[in-house]
Deep mutational scan, measured.
Amino acid sequence: MSIQHFRVALIPFFAAFCLPVFAHPETLVKVKDAEDQLGARVGYIELDLNSGKILESFRPEERFPMMSTFKVLLCGAVLSRVDAGQEQLGRRIHYSQNDLVEYSPVTEKHLTDGMTVRELCSAAITMSDNTAANLLLTTIGGPKELTAFLHNMGDHVTRLDRWEPELNEAIPNDERDTTMPAAMATTLRKLLTGELLTLASRQQLIDWMEADKVAGPLLRSALPAGWFIADKSGAGERGSRGIIAALGPDGKPSRIVVIYTTGSQATMDERNRQIAEIGASLIKHW
């Protein structure tokens, strides 16, 4: 067993022997301040990774656009098919120029040779490549099948209805392509620590998230040296922004954090800054 596999296998073990965790309302004060600064709703939840206990939450059962955070769930569904012998990570998928959609920095470079399922998941999570996500959605049967996968996990809230990039439209009061912070946090925890996926697939999923290259201005910008984070960000229309993450000190994750916002007129930089400040408060009061 590799060191990384050992780390993920012992996530519940280490967490069980940690000192009790206590909620700190100071972080919620910052979440509410972010709402004021952005002029928009902000949803927040913080779960203990081992027990699933909610440590703090704000608007945990209000719907927010998922945006690209759905790509972690998508690759979880792909990995479940791999575990069941219905898919192979090494299978190569070929596609054409007509398949390319807006923001496809990886797939646009491989029109000639195609990409493997493993490479597509890596591109979808680490670079948020939209064509990679659409190609992977095709392998599982489309958005409705991802929703069905989530329902089978016990998540009857999260739903995907459309493809990239239309799913980022974020129309107010439109339930399409949305989740709730509580539902997303619980589902992410199941994917990373539950028995739904094999140990190898859980490790692969967290490795992809740990290698995320496009979430630097968010929670990662607030992390002290030595902290662990595996995350996936999302951005959408109407001032929408979000991030889902597993993080913790001492090089291992111990909490799940989900943050979503929508309806702001603020710039992307300002949305990023507010999420980073929430992260800084979380870490300060850990």
Rank of each mutant, 00 (worst) to 15 (best):
Trp163Phe: 15
Glu46Lys: 10
Glu145Cys: 12
Phe70Arg: 02
Leu49Ser: 07
Ala215Arg: 04
Ala276Asn: 09
Ile140Lys: 03
Ala40Lys: 03
Leu223Cys: 13
Trp208Ala: 03
Val257His: 01
His285Leu: 09
Val117Leu: 11
Pro253Ala: 13
Phe17Asp: 03
Lys232Val: 00
Thr187Glu: 04
Pro25Leu: 10
Asp36Gly: 15
Glu87Leu: 11
Ile11Asp: 02
Lys284Leu: 13
Asn152Ile: 09
Trp163Arg: 11
Gly279Lys: 00
Leu79His: 01
Gln204Asn: 14
Leu146Thr: 04
Asn168Lys: 02
Leu79Ile: 05
Ser96Glu: 13
His285Val: 09
Glu169Cys: 11
Ser51Ala: 08
Pro181Val: 07
Ser264Met: 06
Ala215Gln: 05
Val106Gln: 10
Ala182Cys: 13
Glu35Lys: 03
Ala77Lys: 10
Thr261Val: 13
Ala84Glu: 12
Pro20Phe: 03
Asn98Gly: 12
Ala246Gly: 06
Ala245His: 00
Val157Leu: 10
Ala34Val: 13
Ser240Asn: 07
His5Ile: 08
Ile259His: 00
Asp269Gly: 13
Leu197Gln: 05
Asp231Trp: 03
Ala185Asn: 01
Leu10Asn: 06
Ala266Asn: 11
Gly85Cys: 08
Lys213Cys: 12
Ala222Glu: 13
Thr69Glu: 02
Ile229Val: 10
Thr198Met: 10
His110Asp: 05
Pro165Trp: 05
Thr116Ile: 06
Leu28Gln: 08
Met153Arg: 07
Glu145Leu: 09
Ile3Lys: 14
Ala230Val: 06
Lys30Met: 12
Ala266Gly: 13
Gly216Glu: 07
Ile3Gly: 05
Gln4Ile: 10
His110Cys: 08
Asp212Met: 03
Pro20Glu: 12
Thr178Lys: 02
Ala182Gly: 13
His151Arg: 14
Leu137Pro: 00
Arg159Leu: 06
Ile243Thr: 04
Met1Val: 04
Gly279Met: 04
Thr267Ile: 09
Asp269Pro: 09
Ala23Glu: 05
Leu19His: 15
Glu108Ile: 12
Glu210His: 10
Gly194Tyr: 08
Arg7Ile: 09
Arg176Glu: 07
Ser80Arg: 11
Val106Met: 12
Ala183Val: 13
Asp113Asn: 12
Ile171Lys: 14
Glu237Trp: 10
Phe13Leu: 13
Pro249Val: 06
Gly52Asn: 08
His285Met: 09
Ala77Arg: 09
His151Asp: 09
Gln97Tyr: 15
His156Val: 11
Leu89Val: 06
Phe149Val: 09
Asn152His: 15
Ile45Thr: 12
Arg63Leu: 09
Ser233Ala: 08
Ala215Lys: 05
Ser201Lys: 07
Glu175Asp: 14
Thr126Lys: 07
Ile243His: 02
Thr179Gly: 01
Asp161Thr: 06
Asn98Thr: 15
Leu137Ala: 06
Ser96Gly: 13
Pro249Gly: 05
Phe13Asp: 01
Gly239Pro: 01
Gln86Arg: 12
Asp174Met: 04
Gly43Ile: 00
Ala185Ser: 08
Tyr103Met: 06
Ser96Gln: 12
Arg238Leu: 10
Asn152Lys: 13
Met268Trp: 09
Gly142Tyr: 02
Arg63Glu: 06
Leu282Lys: 02
Ile54Lys: 07
Val82Arg: 07
Ala77Glu: 09
Glu166Arg: 12
Gly248His: 03
His110Pro: 03
Ile140Ala: 07
Thr198Gln: 11
Tyr95Thr: 03
Ala15Gln: 08
Asp177Phe: 01
Gln97Leu: 14
Ala23Asn: 06
Met180Asp: 10
Arg41Leu: 09
Glu35Pro: 01
Arg81Thr: 07
Ile93Cys: 06
Cys75Gly: 09
Ala84Ser: 12
Thr69Asp: 00
Leu146Glu: 02
Met180Gln: 15
Val42Tyr: 06
Ala235Thr: 06
Asn152Arg: 15
Glu46Thr: 13
Leu218His: 03
Asp129Ala: 00
Leu219Lys: 04
Ile256Leu: 11
Asn130Gly: 05
Gly248Cys: 02
Pro224Gln: 06
Thr139His: 09
Met209Cys: 06
Glu35Cys: 05
Ala222Ile: 13
Gly114Ile: 02
Thr112Pro: 14
Leu197Ile: 08
Tyr103Ala: 06
Glu210Thr: 10
Thr112Asn: 13
Gln203Leu: 12
Ile93His: 05
Lys213Ile: 11
Thr139Gln: 13
Leu167Gln: 04
Ala182Phe: 15
Ser281Ile: 14
Glu87Gly: 05
His151Pro: 04
Pro181Lys: 00
Gly194Val: 07
Ile140Arg: 02
Arg220Gln: 04
Ala215Ile: 03
Thr69Ile: 04
Arg118Trp: 15
Ala170Ser: 13
Leu223Ser: 07
Phe17His: 09
Phe70Cys: 09
Leu150Pro: 01
Phe22Gly: 11
Gly236His: 02
Ala9Pro: 14
Gly154Glu: 09
Asp250Thr: 11
Glu210Leu: 08
Asp207Gln: 13
Ile229Tyr: 04
Lys32Ser: 12
Ala183Cys: 08
Glu46Leu: 09
Ser254His: 14
His24Val: 15
Arg271Leu: 12
His285Asn: 14
Arg162Tyr: 03
Ile11Met: 11
Arg220Trp: 02
Ala123Arg: 01
Pro224His: 06
Ile256Thr: 03
Leu150Cys: 12
Arg92Asp: 06
Leu28Glu: 06
Glu164Phe: 00
Ser68Val: 00
Asn130Met: 01
Ala280Gln: 15
Ile125His: 03
Arg220Asp: 03
Met115Phe: 04
Lys30Ser: 10
Pro253Lys: 08
Gly142Pro: 02
Ala225Asp: 14
Val42Arg: 00
Leu79Thr: 02
Leu55Gln: 08
Gly114Trp: 04
Leu49Val: 13
Ser68Thr: 00
Asp155Asn: 06
Pro249Ile: 06
Thr158Tyr: 01
Met66His: 05
Thr267Ser: 13
Thr186Asp: 14
Gly141Trp: 03
Gln97Ala: 13
Gly226Ile: 03
Arg202Ser: 13
Glu166Val: 12
Glu87Gln: 08
Ala225Glu: 14
Gly52Lys: 06
His151Phe: 10
Phe70Pro: 00
Phe64His: 01
Glu108Phe: 08
Arg255Asp: 01
Asp83Val: 03
Lys213Leu: 13
Pro224Met: 04
Phe64Tyr: 06
Glu102Ala: 13
Val21Glu: 05
Phe14Gly: 07
Lys32Tyr: 09
Pro217Leu: 09
Thr262Trp: 08
Val21Thr: 10
Asp33Tyr: 15
Arg202Thr: 15
Lys109Tyr: 15
Thr158Gly: 05
Ser281Phe: 15
Arg241Met: 04
Ile259Cys: 08
Lys190Arg: 14
Asp129Ser: 01
Ala183Tyr: 10
Ile243Ser: 02
Asn272Tyr: 02
Cys121Thr: 03
Arg7Ala: 10
Gly236Arg: 01
Leu120Ile: 06
Leu197Trp: 03
His151Leu: 13
Val258Ala: 09
Thr262Pro: 01
Ile243Glu: 03
Glu169Trp: 14
Thr261Arg: 03
Leu73Glu: 03
Ala222Pro: 10
Lys252Phe: 10
Asp161Ile: 04
Ile93Pro: 02
Asp99Arg: 08
Pro20Tyr: 03
Asp161Cys: 06
Thr186Phe: 15
Val101Ile: 12
Ala23Lys: 05
Ala222Lys: 15
Val8Glu: 10
Ala245Glu: 00
Glu62Asn: 08
Asp36Arg: 15
Ser68Met: 00
Leu73His: 07
Gln97Thr: 13
Lys53Thr: 15
Ala182Asn: 09
Ser233Gly: 10
Gly52His: 06
Glu46His: 08
Gly52Phe: 05
Ala148Met: 15
Ala235Val: 05
Asn130Ala: 03
Leu205Glu: 02
Asp36Thr: 15
Ser254Asp: 13
Phe64Leu: 02
Leu282Thr: 09
Glu277Lys: 10
Leu137Tyr: 09
Lys30Phe: 07
Asp231Ser: 05
Tyr260Trp: 02
Met268Asn: 07
Thr187His: 05
Ile278Arg: 00
Leu73Gln: 05
Leu199Thr: 11
Pro12Arg: 05
